[in-house]
Amino acid sequence: MKITLTLNRKRRTVDVSPLERLLDTLRGALGLTGTKEGCGEGECGACTVLLDGKPVNSCLVPTAQCSGAAITTIEGLAPRGKLHKLQRAFLECGGAQCGICTPGMILAASALPDRPTREQIRTGLAGNLCRCTGYEKIYDAVGVALGTKK
């Protein structure tokens, strides 16, 4: 079936099989491989994208349910050739090691309010697993980018 959606601010029409996962459509037909597959069962958050501004696991979303919706992937977070403030902070604070969790972490963090508390950062990222950093540097990076409340 043909589905029209807005991907990173551009209208796109894709032909998908009815229950195809958004994750596979993004990485396949739409050619954006920044979105990662970790577990494929909703546990790890590596596949996080924004659906109408809200973080969702793209491994659990059928593309057909995104008809008319706006999707933001890591490729669409910052204008071409620029880094988003979260991306810069992850670099500066050592918030990324192997990097597989990073696109999902950054998109989940991008939905946080400005000047979040440490607690808000932790709950906002509770659906994202990282096997490398031990999380503290990720929380630091988000705090630096969004400004932390003391």
Binding site: G42, K54, N57, L60, V61, A126, G127, N128
Partner: peptide, 12 residues
């Protein structure tokens, strides 16, 4: 609801 999954699960 706040203790279900994480934000990604709560949104869907």
């Amino acid at each position: 609801a706040r203790e279900v999954g994480g934000p990604q699960i709560q949104n869907r």
